[in-house]
Write a protein that binds this DNA or RNA. Structure first.
Length: 448
RNA sequence: GGUCCGGUGGCAGAGUGGCUAUGUAGCGGACUGCAAAUCCGCGUACGGGGGUUCGAUUCCCUCCCGGACCUCCA
């Protein structure tokens, strides 16, 4: 078995991955807040988790992957109000859209996908425990976590509470004992979602839900906790504080995985710059696998520059890979060593893709074992899952007959060495978005 | 202001104390009636300046530039 190394954000180093229990790997990822369509930045985090889980599944007999849905949040409440719809309608619809988008991207669903609103009791239980243990206090209707009660607060993100005070760009609520204290429970007005609690009708703070759900489904200690690097502080830092104070005997997450952000055409993706892409936006203009390959073409801890040119390049790369598969039979093969080695080295997807290129070249040269290895290796990355013919031609349609007829006419013209006519027919097809490839055995076609 | 990451060939993007990925674009060639696809060849990159070393893109220092985070954010 290959040695799997993973970069742990807390240790700030790439270290050998040592499972808590090699028979059962447990991983938790922060899922979406369901108030809007997922964008390609969200997708990068989901893909990082996906490749991580695929790799772990290959190396270990059992992996439990938990990814939550945040369906109570002030952003949700605000959006529902703007849309003039029920909160539940908004969150249900957005959750379905999220699932559909990830399915289109060939992302493996989590084993357990808990919803925050189904875990309010668990959250209250944790909060009560924190209060009882002196890690949390009630103030002005809120329950707050006391960062000073947890000596290692800041260890994950590498900051200390004093620094946070100096740079804070948000005004500190007066009822906080320490400016870094954060909300565990907050009171709800009549028009806000709320649940009865020992501290009055209210709703949970953002961070407590992940502590509650990871504990409920994975226990006091689990192997990996992941998310985007922007979640490291404050979200993950706070989760860690809550959970470790609640369960001093546990380790909470043993490894922390954080993916870097992405840029769009060299700039930060933002709605005001007009370069904000949802998964759906991209899928209108390119196949899902092209987007997937593009996002995996940079290492997850590097900033990735998403560009239109890159999307086209990814598609061309896949064309070549699919050609390599289509060139002959594709035997079932074990995942190739080179790909496994790359992925075992902190999920080095660019190196894994380079292996795929080498295999594709061999396959195109007639090595069908390499074609099998290409398929198996690509599968580790969730790529090349389509039928090559479908990849090149799309779903078969009535148009195919017409295309075939024009091709036959052109072959006739060619036979009579009427190249002007043959070229005219080829141009006509090109106008229909069809590219021809003459081979020894006839003429193949594909969509541009 | 604080903390932390980066700067690699036209572009994308790995990696390494000496053998300088991979892809794409470009150029030349083979194949083809012409294309497309495929194949062959070419272009020797590591922000600037110091230092350590027999040797640095890789280690150290410094400067410049970019980015992230500092309680909305994948």
């Amino acid at each position: 078995m290959s040695h799997f190394s993973l970069h742990d954000s807390q240790r700030r180093a790439t270290v050998p991955f040592v499972p808590l229990d090699p028979e059962h790997i447990k991983i938790y990822y922060c899922g979406p807040t369901v108030y809007d369509l997922a964008h390609i930045g969200n997708l990068r985090a989901m893909l990082t988790a996906d490749v991580l889980v695929r790799t772990l599944r290959h190396l270990y007999p059992r992996v439990t992957f938990v990814r939550n849905i945040t369906d109570v949040d002030d952003k949700i409440t605000a959006r529902a109000r703007d849309n003039n719809e029920d909160i539940a309608t908004l969150t249900e619809r957005t959750t379905h859209e999220f699932h559909a988008d990830l399915a289109a991207m060939n992302v493996i669903p989590p084993d357990i996908e808990p919803r925050a609103t189904h875990n309010i009791d668990e959250m209250q239980h944790l909060i009560a425990r924190l209060v009882a243990q002196g890690h949390a206090y009630e103030a002005d209707g809120h329950v707050l976590f006391s960062v000073e009660s947890f000596p290692s607060y800041g260890a994950l993100s590498g900051r200390n509470p004093e620094e946070l005070v100096a740079g804070a760009r948000v005004e500190v609520a007066t009822y906080k004992k320490h400016p870094g204290d954060f909300v565990l429970w907050k009171p709800s007005s009549e028009d806000q979602p709320g649940w009865d609690s020992p501290w009055g009708r209210g709703r949970p703070g953002w961070h407590i839900e992940c502590s509650a759900m990871s504990h409920r489904y994975l226990g006091e200690s689990f192997d990996i906790h992941g998310g985007g690097s922007d979640l490291m502080f404050p979200h993950h830092e706070n989760e860690r504080a809550q959970s470790m104070c609640c369960f001093p005997g546990g380790k909470f997450a043993n490894y922390w995985v954080h993916n870097a952000m992405l840029l769009v055409e060299g700039e930060k993706m933002s709605k005001s710059l007009g370069n904000f892409f949802t998964i759906r936006d991209v899928l209108k203009q390119a196949p899902a696998e092209a987007l997937r390959l593009l996002l995996l073409s940079a290492h997850y801890r590097s900033t990735l520059n998403y560009t239109q040119a890159g999307l086209l390049e990814a598609r061309k790369t896949l064309d070549r890979f699919y050609r390599a598969l289509a060139a002959g039979p594709v035997p079932r093969t074990e995942a190739p060593e080179g790909v496994l080695k790359a992925l075992s080295d902190d999920l080095n997807t660019p190196a894994a893709i380079a292996e795929l290129h080498a295999l594709a070249s061999k396959a195109l040269a007639g090595d069908r074992t390499a074609a099998g290895a290409l398929k198996a290796g690509a599968d580790m990355l969730g790529l090349l899952s389509e039928d090559p013919e479908k990849w090149f031609r799309g779903e078969s349609s009535d148009e195919d007959t017409e295309i075939q007829a024009l091709i036959t006419l052109r072959l006739e013209a060619k036979k009579q060495r009427d190249f002007a006519k043959a070229d005219a027919l080829r141009e006509q097809l090109q106008g229909m978005g069809i590219i021809l490839e003459d081979t020894r055995d006839g003429t193949e076609w594909r969509r541009a």
